[in-house]
Design a protein around this nucleic acid. Structure first.
Length: 426
RNA sequence: GGAGGGUUCGCCUAAUGGUAUGGCACUGGUUUCGAAAACCAGCGGGAGAAAUCCCUUACAGGUUCAAGUCCUGUACCCUCCGCCA
């Protein structure tokens, strides 16, 4: 959500931002509704002021007749007030619906474009592995090594269901412990294990609904299953006034992540590249309301994920998302994409974005600035580890005989084991 | 799942249906070599240059000229019972 005052004063900028994001948004229509809102608010407040004033007087007036006369007048005023109040409520509802659809303005450094096809590569790292054999997919590799069971996954969990088992599970545990260690060494991030079952309010606050409603699972009690720990971490400080000296607040959240993948039917249907449920580490930063701070921490959390990927020895590239590929609230976003040999291309493993105060305005997370004014903090987030790097490791580290070397960084978390080979019995 | 009790500023607290009180904490100032104490001021949110006005007693409705107070619903918390990793 943007500030209505900001929208009024910068309507061309807001309009151009929406256009750049390829989002249909009519700023003039919003301003017309806002005019009506302001006009009605003024009128209602004036009438309320009168009502309050007379009400005070009524108590002091002893003359019975005069008192009755005042009450009659107030009855009339009340009727008008009720009528206008109803109008105002209706306008407010329209206004609010409109306001939560106003897109945040993309940064000037964000390239034009309509879809992910227009994203721009800004960095590559590592050497794409050259195999002197035909590389296998993670599916074949992991199944052969008893690391993954898709048949039973489907039996138990339905479409896109899976079990990680044996060395597959161990490798995943190792990755988690590696991530935890990485951030412990780095310092500054508070580790958190957060809920995935969340109230609707939080998903609205973070901007996942109403636009992305169909991608979320919903319970019969009205809660949602979150697709990222970001939502719960942002909710953690909802409706709070933070102490400025505690900023920035950096959090490392771990949670189950649920994705309905409603818009991805038929995409990536084999294997575990695209699944309905996986575990994820996510970085969230809350900082002072300054663009420079946002940019600084955006680069920082992006670099964290790059360092992790480098430590795992995975070749990757970073793309800057074009405006048309940005979410409603995002100002700028980097995707990190890791090389996937079986597809002979890079696939996304994480995504870093910042929002300015778009989310915190909705969630009401503020701090008191030096001048005593309450300000909304800025928020940012980035994946630290999704479910996909496991796949990338398996495919990039495969050997001719179908075994998988374990990245050095992970070996300490695998009891020193350096290679995954077929067990005699599975 | 069942029964009962509760929710007023960061914390405590007051308010015969008549427009939210006081204290603690906190912030700034005076004083001081410095601090403590004392004193003064501020201390829920919004609009406004200001005067001032509106909103605010968990939330949403209702009754009333007027609701923290009365009525209805919802959320959350506590206690007890039941179930349970």
């Amino acid at each position: 959500m943007l500030d209505i005052k900001f929208i009024r004063e910068n309507k061309d900028l807001v309009s151009a931002g929406a256009k750049k994001k390829h989002i249909d948004f009519n700023v003039e229509e919003l301003l017309k509704i806002d005019d009506k809102r302001r006009e009605l608010t003024q009128s209602v407040e004036k009438k309320r002021a009168e009502q309050n004033a007379v009400s005070q007087k009524i108590v002091k007036v002893s003359d019975k007749k005069a008192k009755e006369q005042m009450i009659i007048e107030m009855k009339m005023l009340k009727a008008e007030l009720e009528k206008e109040g109803k109008e105002l409520r209706e306008i407010m509802q329209k206004w609010q619906t409109f306001m939560i659809s106003v897109p945040n303005i993309p940064d000037i450094s964000v390239p034009d474009g309509a879809s992910d096809a227009d994203n721009k590569e800004i960095k590559t790292y590592g050497i794409i592995p050259q195999f002197d054999f035909i590389p296998k997919s993670h599916i074949e590799l992991m199944q052969n090594l008893g690391m993954l069971d898709l048949e039973r996954g489907t039996k138990v969990a339905g479409f896109r269901g899976y079990f990680l088992k044996g060395d597959g599970a161990r490798l995943q545990f190792a990755l988690w412990r590696f991530i935890e260690d990485f951030f412990s060494r780095k310092g500054g991030f508070t580790p958190m294990i957060v809920p995935s079952l969340l109230r609707r309010e939080l998903l609205l606050g973070t901007g996942y609904i109403p636009q992305g409603e169909e991608d979320l699972y919903k319970t019969q009690d009205g809660e949602y299953l979150s697709g990222t720990a970001e939502v719960a971490m942002m909710g953690y400080y909802m409706d709070e006034v933070l102490d400025k000296k505690n900023l920035p607040i950096k959090m490392l959240g771990f949670s189950d992540a649920f994705r309905r993948e409603a818009g991805a039917h038929g995409k990536d249907t084999k294997g575990i590249l695209r699944v309905h449920e996986f575990y994820k580490f996510e970085q969230v930063v809350l900082c002072e309301a300054s663009h420079a701070e946002s940019v600084k921490f955006h680069e920082e959390i992006q670099r964290n994920t790059e360092e992790i990927t480098e430590a795992l020895g995975l070749p990757y590239r970073v793309v800057i998302n074009c405006a048309g590929d940005l979410g409603l609230g995002q100002v700028k976003k980097y995707d990190i994409e890791v090389w996937l040999p079986s597809e002979n291309t890079y696939r996304e493993t994480g995504s870093a974005s910042y929002f300015h105060d778009f989310q915190t305005r909705r969630l009401n997370i503020r701090y008191r600035d030096d001048d005593g004014k309450l300000k909304f903090v800025h928020s940012l987030n980035n994946t630290a580890l999704s479910g996909r790097p496991l796949i990338m490791i398996v495919e990039n580290y495969q050997q001719a005989d179908g075994s998988i070397k374990i990245p050095e960084a992970l070996q300490p978390y695998m009891n020193g084991q350096s290679i995954i080979t077929k067990k005699i019995s599975n």
